[in-house]
């Protein structure tokens, strides 16, 4: 899977002929002496160029549709309510008052802290637990291994709503309702992560384990010093997938928290909508506050996000 960068995409997806002709061919003719240009293809250059322009137009159109909501969010968050109602979005109207007001009424800092604590803990511990289990499933032999694994796989089919009610009752009975434990503990166990890592661990040569065992290494050591170091990219991809999923999760934190101080960002934001359904400036400021850090991290680490979600989304294929 090559998702490294735009160059990789360009290189593989080239339609025909010289990319150079398309690149500096916006106004100028590229000389026939240029490397890689074959005479037979010169004739199609003009229609190709038109095709490319049309494609760019379509892609820019899509981009506008995708970005418009973000743009609207930002713009509305920057003007006071009267200006918004009068549809005046000029620079002279811009102010940060919506942000100040939003921070005053809603403890977004606390939501951030909660989201960060929950997401980081779940990501790290879930991957650790899943990795240990995946190692056992993929590289150790013990009685009942395959039966347990089949049982794991079978439960992948069960939709989340089936378990949300009993898990809520379990959490309540444990006395964990409205606490970090309620948000974190049930999310630490993931059949999917275990499955994904097990598939990957099976592709590593068994000779490595055998050789290490001959040298007297224990299983724990093989896991820590051979298997883990060899699965860096998969772990990183899975980590981003898990983190993103937990950070944006809505139903579970909605169900097991009640006090404002335990809310994560999505739940806090949704409660805010419930209270101020038409104070658009405040709502948009809240949305921007909720999104900004994630978007900044995404733009910086785009490659990893895309890789993580593609790889995990496709079950490691």
């Amino acid at each position: 899977m090559n998702l490294d960068d735009a160059a990789g995409v360009d290189g593989l997806g080239q339609e025909t002929g010289p990319s150079a002709a398309g690149v500096d061919g916006l106004g100028r003719e590229t000389g026939p002496s240029e490397n890689g240009v074959r005479r037979s293809e010169m004739r199609t250059t003009r229609s190709q160029r038109l095709g490319r322009l049309a494609l760019h137009a379509a892609l820019i159109g899509f981009s506008v549709l995708m970005v418009a909501p973000f743009f609207a969010m930002l713009l509305v968050s920057l003007v006071p309510q009267q200006a918004f109602l009068a549809r005046e979005f000029g620079l002279d109207q811009w102010t940060l008052s919506n942000y100040r007001e939003t921070f005053r009424i809603v403890p977004f800092g606390r939501f951030y802290l909660n989201s960060a604590i929950v997401s980081v803990t779940v990501t790290v511990v879930q991957i650790l637990i899943s990795s240990l289990a995946a190692f056992a499933f993929a590289r150790l032999r013990f009685r009942g291994r395959d039966a347990i694994f089949v049982l794991y796989l079978a439960t992948l089919m069960i939709p989340f709503p089936v378990t949300v009610i009993p898990n809520f009752l379990i959490i309540k009975n444990l006395g964990w309702y409205d606490s970090y434990r309620a948000l974190i503990v049930p999310a630490l166990f993931s059949v999917f992560s275990t499955f994904l890592l097990r598939q990957y661990y099976r592709t590593l040569p068994m000779d490595l384990d055998e050789a290490a065992r001959m040298d007297g290494a224990s299983s724990l050591r093989i896991w820590a010093q051979i298997v883990l170091p060899l699965s860096g990219p998969v772990l990183a991809a899975l980590a981003i997938f898990v983190f993103q999923g937990v950070w944006n999760d809505f139903l579970w934190p909605l169900v097991v928290t009640s006090s404002e101080t335990m809310r994560t960002i999505p739940v806090g934001l949704a409660a805010f909508v419930g209270q101020y359904s038409t104070a658009w400036g405040l709502l948009m400021a809240g949305a921007v506050i909720a999104l900004l850090p994630v978007l900044v991290i995404y733009i910086i680490a785009q490659k990893w996000f895309v890789q993580g979600i593609t790889l995990s989304g496709m079950g490691g294929r």
Binding site: M73, N248, L269, L291
Partner: peptide, 8 residues
């Protein structure tokens, strides 16, 4: 977050 998208 879907919630932010829903608000916009």
């Amino acid at each position: 977050t879907v919630v932010a998208g829903a608000i916009v």
